[in-house]
Design a protein around this nucleic acid. Sequence first.
RNA 1: GGCGGUGUAGCUCAGUCGGUAGAGCAGCGGCUUCAUAAGCCGCGUGUCGUCGGUUCGAGUCCGGCCACCGCUACCA
Length: 566
Amino acid sequence: MSRYLVTSALPYANGPIHFGHIAGAYLPADVYVRTLRMQGEEVLYICGADEHGTAITVNAEAEGIPYSEYVARWRGVIKDTFDRFGIRFDVWSGTSICPEHPAQSQEFFRRLEGNGFLEQQESEQLYCPHDRMFLADRYIVGTCYLCGHDKARGNECPACGQELDPLRMAVAACRICGTRPEKRKTRHWYLDLAKLRDEHIGQWFQQHEWKPNVTGFIGGQLKEIGLRPITRDMSWGIPVPADCAGSETGKVLYVWFDAPIGYISFTQEWARMAGKPDDWKRWWQDPDSRIVHFLGKDNISFHCLIFPSMLYGVKQGYQLPWAVPANEFYNLQGGKFSTSEKRTIPIEEFCARYDTEAARFYLLASSPESADSDWRWEDFQATVNAQLADKIGNLVTRVLRFLEKNYEGVIPPCDDATAAELDRVLFEECGTFGDPAEFTRRFQFRRACEQLIQNAVLANVFVDRLAPWTLRKTDPVRAGAVLATCCQWIALLARWMAPFMPAKAGSVWEMLGNAGRVEEAGWPKLPVAGAWRTLPAGRKLGAVGPLFAKIEKETVAEELAKLAPK
RNA sequence: GGCGGUGUAGCUCAGUCGGUAGAGCAGCGGCUUCAUAAGCCGCGUGUCGUCGGUUCGAGUCCGGCCACCGCUACCA
């Protein structure tokens, strides 16, 4: 048994999250965590909001509210979305509210400096006298000195696609207020990534096994990597520790630097709340811990290169990531999700109209594991109707309703000889089945979904072969044994379903008359003939009802119409 | 420009160590009626983007090219 520390990329508290985020970094992690838990592993699932940075201050000021209020609102909205979709963290915090976070971030800065991995350098940057801040490149508009386009961003020209140096732009303005910025000198700290690479991280990266999209991406970056600034002139953030700052004032840690440290400080917060404040060390510094970071491809370099460099650089025995299941991007109907352009699926509206558990399944079944993929309404409909409702839902109702009508809603007995015979049919003649967790553990969620459905199909084949509706007329006891066998299989199915669709699995579990929660039944061993039945004969079934509502063609058409460009 | 990803049956995608191409959905045909008009069975020759190379043999390795998508670091 290992110990798994699972994280999902910290969502930036600057807006709502959409299905792309859920499919990429959160839902797979939730399913992974639930599966490992049912298998008896020790697991901790950490997340929280990323709450510093310029974008937040600019937007909060535009709204005229305090930064803390602004981030609190989005922290709440985002958490609400997770709750609605059944994504459950052991701790949900935020980088601006976690009590442990400032000290922990400063500790990293201090140790990195002490170990010689930081450098100070002076540079010229553009400063807006009106907004009284240094401007990030993206907050500068000006004329591209390469092609003459007059609305070029400081970092890149949208017209010619070239990278730009904002200091060279002849005509430049602050994108926030329009004022012409001035050049000012400022001093900052930089993380020496090349040194960290040469000392350990380069070798570590090459020895580690990664998904193909990770290997290719980082391989190139490793060669070019150099100094990366980790401080910034602003007030919203974690201050550079006083004992390191010297004469410098008004410097905070760059948001990308403090954000991943949040994984650690949130773990410390969790440990304190759990009444064992030192327990976080076991999760982060014990070689038996396996750290798993779920994220989208935009975060690959941070989690495979920069954060590992930081973890190594402090030299405090931190474990480096064990696995980084990085997903590609998830799009909407062939185009990007875009809240501002209303190319999105509003979460609240969606939840009022559709089944979030069905959405979980579809998001997993279409997840962007090896390439960008899409939410397509027609596919959502097909998956819900043909796979969930017809294959799983219908299996449950066809068996349980039969028992209600003809066997007084009680699981009939099945003697050992009959059980042995039926097992032979089930395991040898009805097709293949498998353990979805085998795929989940390898981060292959699409395949795990397929396996789940395949396991339900097996039971449908079994029912068809034995045809209890015919058998009942000549041999009702044997027909009962067939149906009892189906119930046993459905009980397995409920447990297999639990990580993917926890509420639906719970419903099935109750329909079978089980007390307690399905998660607590644990993950089933792969069934083998003669040793897999768990339900007692004579068990009274619960109320039987449809599991999944089908989605009408007209509904799909309406949704597609909403996305059509106006 | 640089880097990365993808390009396989109508659609969505699998193809581990190179050995005569697979699944699901849709479609067509049949069986069945317990069930949410559900279930089961049968039917798949597609230049594996393109050109060339390595090899006895390549979708699977190497190189050129084309198409689509993404990233390009002070953005979080």
